[in-house]
Simulated assay, not measured.
Amino acid sequence: MAIWVDKEQCVACGACESACPFGAIVMEADKAVITEACTACGACVSTCPVTAIIRDVEEAVTAIDKAAYKDVWVYIEHADGQARNVGFELLGEGRKLADSMGQKLAGIIVGDKVEQLVKAVFANGADKVYLVEGKEFAKYTTDAYTAVFTDLITDYKPSVILMGATINGRDLGPRVACRVGTGLTADCTDLGIDEQTGLVAWTRPAFGGNIMATILCPEHRPQMGTVRPNVFKRPQPDFGRTGEVIRVSSTVKPEAVRTKVIEAVQVCTGSCNLEESEIIVSGGRGMGKPENFVLIEELAAVLGGAVGASRAVIDAGWKPHPHQVGQTGKTVGPKVYIACGISGAIQHVAGMSSSDTIIAINKDADAPIFKVADYGIVGDVMEVLPALTEEFKKAKQ
């Protein structure tokens, strides 16, 4: 898409210059000139009183044979020989999509000596598994995984691909989408089938979380998206299920991998492994000061849980970003979520509302957090937390 000025029509009234939100229009020689700062937003087009500013739409995309693309794929991310939960969560949701579309569900496993993951993938709903093994895949690298995924798509033509919106998924997804010439909807919080078109309807927060946008991909294949961990529940596994294993030989050459993982340094302990934790104790600005977070940490340690935090706490520098729960942090769904001194802003609630049981502690009885809580304690967290910790210690003894 491009914006240009019809010099013969332009009267240099300056309306477009003041309307441009990016300062991309300047007046030269009594004519409007569009600079490289233009984002083609179109604000100037409707403003021009003499219709001298024109927006050209790019030529239609080359038609593809959409019927050649079938099946729903789920990327099974793993570490240390264990599949991450998000892969199983997406298998559950992918099963629903595949059934609605009358297609099969496949798990994609790439790694070194990872065949032991196949049974769990079948147990969680897959009809078949594409297995790619090789020493070059022992550790995740952008080059190797992008190349092998691109080859898989080119050869087998899936209709839909689901990936977790993890660190690796957010790296891999857009690179693969670019290679195969399709779009990608990032950080989705809901999936469905559009009734009118039969396409996958990808839902994600937009404009800072103030609205939810539903996005379709009508002209390109595969339809791709990354989905936040813990927004869907993991299905109940059935280890009696079996399926077809398709072993794929890698065509990735060692010289094509430009990086090598020398060492993995753990910068965060189990206390901030929020995605995998069944119990999370989170603190907000109501904790008063960073030193008081020791009360959160003590309760989490007694319960064997992780430590979470609201965005206000992260912005204040009290805790590092890996602890953040919310729309701009991590989406979690533990069995128990304890919110301490957290008011309950919509952005925070969006990141933890799928928890099985929510317990809120706040001295403000009218705090919004109580509207989503299963249990509420109105009181000072400085007094309530030590008492809770002590009682749990006694119960464990």
Rank of each mutant, 00 (worst) to 15 (best):
A2T: 14
W4P: 00
C10F: 06
A12M: 06
C16F: 09
C16H: 01
E17F: 09
E17P: 04
S18Y: 11
S18G: 10
A19S: 15
P21S: 03
F22Y: 15
G23E: 11
A24G: 11
I25L: 12
V26Q: 15
D30L: 11
A32V: 09
A37W: 05
A43Q: 15
C44H: 14
V45W: 08
S46Q: 14
V50D: 14
T51W: 10
I53K: 05
I53D: 13
I54G: 06
V57D: 15
Y69A: 03
D71T: 09
W73H: 06
V74K: 03
Y75F: 09
G81I: 15
V86D: 04
G87D: 00
G87L: 04
F88R: 01
D99C: 02
G102W: 14
A106E: 11
I109W: 08
V110D: 09
D112I: 08
K113Q: 15
Q116K: 15
V118W: 14
V121L: 10
F122E: 02
A123P: 00
G125F: 04
V129L: 03
V129A: 08
V129I: 04
E136K: 14
F137E: 08
K139L: 13
K139T: 12
K139C: 14
T146Q: 14
D151N: 05
L152I: 07
I153K: 13
D155S: 15
Y156P: 08
L162F: 05
M163A: 12
G164K: 07
T166V: 00
N168S: 06
G169C: 03
D171T: 02
G173K: 04
P174W: 11
P174L: 03
R175W: 02
A177C: 00
C178R: 13
V180E: 08
V180T: 11
L184V: 05
L184C: 11
D187K: 04
D187S: 09
D190S: 00
T197I: 06
L199C: 09
W202N: 03
P205T: 01
G208E: 01
G208F: 01
N210L: 01
A213R: 00
P218L: 10
H220T: 11
P222R: 07
M224A: 07
K233W: 09
K233L: 10
P237L: 13
K253G: 08
V257H: 07
K260H: 05
A264G: 04
A264V: 09
A264C: 04
S277C: 04
I279K: 06
I280S: 03
V281A: 04
S282C: 08
G288N: 12
K289W: 05
P290A: 08
E291G: 06
F293P: 07
L295N: 04
E297V: 07
A300H: 07
A301H: 12
G304L: 10
G304T: 06
G305T: 05
A306S: 15
S310T: 15
S310V: 05
R311H: 07
A316W: 06
G317N: 12
W318N: 09
W318D: 03
G329K: 02
G329P: 08
V332A: 04
V332R: 04
K335H: 14
I342T: 05
I342Q: 09
G351I: 08
M352S: 07
S353A: 14
S354G: 10
D356N: 14
D356F: 00
A365W: 00
D374V: 03
G379F: 13
G379C: 12
D380I: 13
M382L: 11
K394Q: 13
K396N: 02
K396H: 13
K396Q: 12
Q397G: 06
